[in-house]
């Protein structure tokens, strides 16, 4: 599903590569944790998958497509098949829960009937049934992240990228978030989650890829966060 082949990324303003000779292969339906300290290249990895950045060297394929050969005007098509969740939720403060989720479909021109049907389903899936009318500032952090996950998943993407989704949430609530991610993964969606949260990684027992200074230092199925932390 995601193939990195000797990928190196050097940002113009920095001498040290953000990623160096990274080769990673994530299969369809996998759940992968991307761990490592800040600046280890986790976010760069996610941005490369979305083609928000181009690799300096190496080849990236997403669902069999070589991103280098993907023309600019087709990038939106790629992004429609990838959902994204962030640490800071990125909800629209002037739209309620339903509107925030529906927005993702409206802007890609889905018909209104389709939106009316699928949005409530996804809101139920993330456990926010009955809160359609709530505004983001009336929700707890965990609930806001559920809205963000609903928005990321509403178009049924093949891949869900989560960049420290539990970073702003207390441990007890994080468990609920992880349950939703697990539920999404069980529908066949590939999930890649960058995180610092050792407790979560240890409890989930999924594949762990550890990055350090832009290099893969560990790739372990059913792994833990690591002894050093």
């Amino acid at each position: 599903m995601i193939n990195f082949d000797n990928v190196t990324k050097i940002y113009p303003s920095q001498s040290r590569p953000a990623l160096e000779n990274v080769s990673i292969s994530v299969e369809k339906g996998e759940f992968v944790f991307l761990v490592g300290p800040s600046g280890s290249g986790k976010s760069t990895f996610l941005r490369l998958v979305l083609k928000e950045e181009r690799p300096t060297d190496g080849r990236i394929r997403v669902s069999g497509r070589d991103l280098a050969h993907l023309s600019n005007w087709r990038v939106p098509m790629l992004r429609r098949r990838i959902g994204c969740v962030f640490q800071d939720f990125r909800l629209l403060p002037n739209k309620n829960v339903y509107q925030n989720v529906a927005f993702a479909l409206e802007v890609i021109g889905k018909p209104r009937r389709f939106i009316r049907k699928v949005v409530p389903e996804v809101i139920d899936l993330v456990g926010l049934e009955g809160k359609h009318e709530r505004m983001p500032d009336e929700l707890s952090g965990g609930e806001q992240q559920r809205v963000a996950m609903a928005r990321a998943f509403v178009n049924r993407p093949m891949i869900l990228l989560a960049d420290e989704p539990t970073g702003n949430i207390d441990p007890a609530t994080s468990i609920g978030i992880m349950k939703v991610l697990d539920r999404i993964n069980r529908t066949g969606t590939t999930v890649v989650m960058a995180t610092h949260d050792a407790a979560i990684v240890d409890s989930m027992r999924k594949r762990v890829i550890e990055l350090e200074y832009g290099k893969v230092v560990r790739d372990q199925s059913r792994g833990v966060y690591g002894q050093a932390y």
């Binding site: 790629l78 992004r79 629209l92 993702a104 802007v107 928005r151 178009n155």
Partner: peptide
């Protein structure tokens, strides 16, 4: 920028944005 950022993220076409 918040709206357009999300539109980009969920794959809205440039024209639409």
């Amino acid at each position: 920028r918040r709206e357009t950022g999300i539109m980009r993220l969920v794959g809205a076409s440039n024209f639409y944005i």
